[in-house]
């Protein structure tokens, strides 16, 4: 067996998987709190990529140094995506709270179609080149034989972001309130949690993570268009279900498992079937472990 090739595939899978994980977190956190699959989440990610593209373009013309472009463009993407996430919840989901579960789901699909077409009108359907925002720095070159500097940054950034998120959820007051709201919303209200605020915070955090993922992935892929949110969203959703929807460590694990499955599948079998591997894995998990890898089977509420 060729270990070099294996390592290459493994690292490729980890790179892909960390991005899936970042986006999957948005699906899983929202599902954990309001039991809604936010189908517009992929579009939030796409909007993050466009915001970074536009911001980076403007800053480049203005002659900013490379590192500051990276930071400012990422910050713009995070803020812009977060405000979209917040607004989408407010206008498309909040009015439907208490409605049958199918209604917000349809509203989410509508939001997704709306956002796609709105970006299509504004930006056309052409693929736009996305310049790698990571500056060429000496210390990042030859850091490893199997990983490019960009890939190292992707793994490192995702890891840091996910660790920070875990600490936030575990120790901060808002994090505790989020967990409490996910476990029993009415009881959270009875201890004084403003549930509307917690839900907004969840959307803001999930959207920010998607924007970080967008900057990372777009820098790696080199081009974006209005439709990129669809397939990435679908994959990230798969990752969330794989790990156990509603579970935060599950989304992280699910992302990595999915990324590696795709990477090994394309590397050892055929790259034509990349999506087939992803969704076959999903079907298998749904058959043999419907609650996902780390998911808890539903506790019946009495």
């Amino acid at each position: 067996m060729d270990w070099g090739y294996f390592k290459e595939l493994l690292m490729g899978g980890v790179v892909k998987g960390s991005i899936y994980a970042l986006i999957a977190l948005g699906y899983t956190m929202v599902y954990g709190i309001i039991e809604l699959i936010n189908f517009a989440h992929g579009e939030i990610y796409m909007i993050g990529a466009f915001t970074a593209l536009i911001a980076a373009g403007v800053l480049t013309v203005a002659g900013f140094p490379a590192w500051s472009i990276l930071i400012l463009a990422s910050a713009a993407a995070v803020v812009w995506s977060a405000s979209y996430g917040y607004t989408v919840e407010k206008i498309a989901y909040r009015p439907l709270r208490g409605a049958p579960r199918l209604s917000p789901l349809i509203s989410a699909l509508g939001m997704s179609i709306f956002l796609q077409n709105y970006v299509l009108l504004a930006q056309t359907s052409n693929f736009m080149p996305f310049k790698n925002l990571f500056p060429e720095e000496g210390f990042l070159e030859n850091i490893s034989e199997v990983l490019s500097a960009t890939e190292v940054i992707i793994i490192f950034t995702s890891a840091v972001v996910m660790i920070l998120l875990s600490l936030f959820i575990k120790y901060s007051t808002t994090g505790k309130a989020m967990r409490a709201t996910a476990q029993d919303r009415n009881m959270a209200m009875l201890v004084g949690v403003n549930v509307d605020k917690v839900i907004s915070a969840t959307f803001i955090i999930g959207s920010s993570l998607a924007a970080v993922g967008a900057v990372l992935i777009a820098s790696n892929m080199g081009q974006i268009n209005f439709f990129i949110g669809f397939i990435v969203g679908l994959k990230a959703f798969t990752a969330a279900v794989l790990g156990g929807i509603g579970s935060i460590p599950g989304a992280m694990l699910g992302g990595l498992v999915l990324g590696c499955t795709e990477s090994f599948g394309t590397g050892y079998v055929s790259s034509d079937y990349e999506d087939v591997f992803a969704f076959t894995l999903l079907v298998l998990i749904l058959i043999f472990r419907p609650a996902g890898l780390l998911g808890k089977s539903d506790i019946q509420k009495v």
Binding site: K176, R179, Q183, D184, M189, L190, G192, V195
Partner: peptide, 23 residues
């Protein structure tokens, strides 16, 4: 809204305890 009522000093222990199970 319930959280404002709680902030006035009016609290409830609901039926069935409603402990947050995973906290």
């Amino acid at each position: 809204p319930p959280h404002e009522i709680v902030s006035m000093g009016l609290c409830q222990v609901p039926e069935g305890r409603r402990i947050f199970p995973h906290l």
